[in-house]
């Protein structure tokens, strides 16, 4: 067991974790933050995307023990009350159906918009589709997800 202290959704958290505990397990089982989902075993689907120190990471391939001092944001902590513009946009544009991939999609969406804005690049539809490479949705055909991210980008 390793003692790890980090911040999750703005709150300090300190826990003993086994060396092999993944961030996804840590969030779901230890902290009961079940909005972070596990859809595959191979880091392909992106249902588990969270932000670590402001950057999107796949929680299923991140060891909890490696996050000493880190600042983790999950879907539950994305907005401080109310909804984040990305969350609003997913609802507005029907960017979700079963909802299972949605937290990861939203976290990836926020990350890509933030990066493109910081770099001063234009987030075109083509770029959004390319940036969503690491997130699989089986329901929507991505059409409305792309629209949602595009719309949120104009409001973030």
């Amino acid at each position: 067991m390793t003692k790890v202290s980090l911040t999750v959704n703005g709150k300090p958290v300190a826990r003993d974790v086994a060396g092999g505990t993944l961030l996804s397990e840590f969030l779901r089982e230890d902290l009961r933050l079940t909005g972070t989902h596990i859809g595959c075993d191979t880091s392909q689907c992106g249902a588990c995307v969270v932000h670590v120190n402001g950057k999107a990471v796949k929680a299923c391939t991140t060891l909890a023990a490696s996050l000493e001092g880190a600042d983790v944001t999950t879907i539950e902590g994305l907005a401080n009350g109310g909804l984040h513009p990305m969350q609003e946009a997913f609802k507005e544009h029907h960017g979700l159906q079963c909802g299972f991939c949605t937290p990861g999609m939203i976290m990836s969406g926020v990350d890509m918009v933030t990066r493109y804005k910081a770099e001063g690049r234009e987030l075109t539809q083509e770029a959004i589709r390319h940036e969503l490479e690491g997130n699989i949705c089986r329901c929507t055909g991505y059409h409305n997800i792309v629209k949602a991210v595009e719309d949120a980008a104009s409001k973030m």
């Binding site: 079940t34 909005g35 972070t36 539950e76 909804l83 969350q87 609802k91 029907h94 949605t102």
Partner: peptide, 21 residues
């Protein structure tokens, strides 16, 4: 009509079977 069920999904509050403990 915008979906009424969306709020729980976009905020990570959906309750799927594996979320049940």
């Amino acid at each position: 009509v915008k979906r009424r069920e969306d709020k729980r999904f976009i905020t990570g509050k959906g309750k799927y079977t594996d979320d049940v403990r």
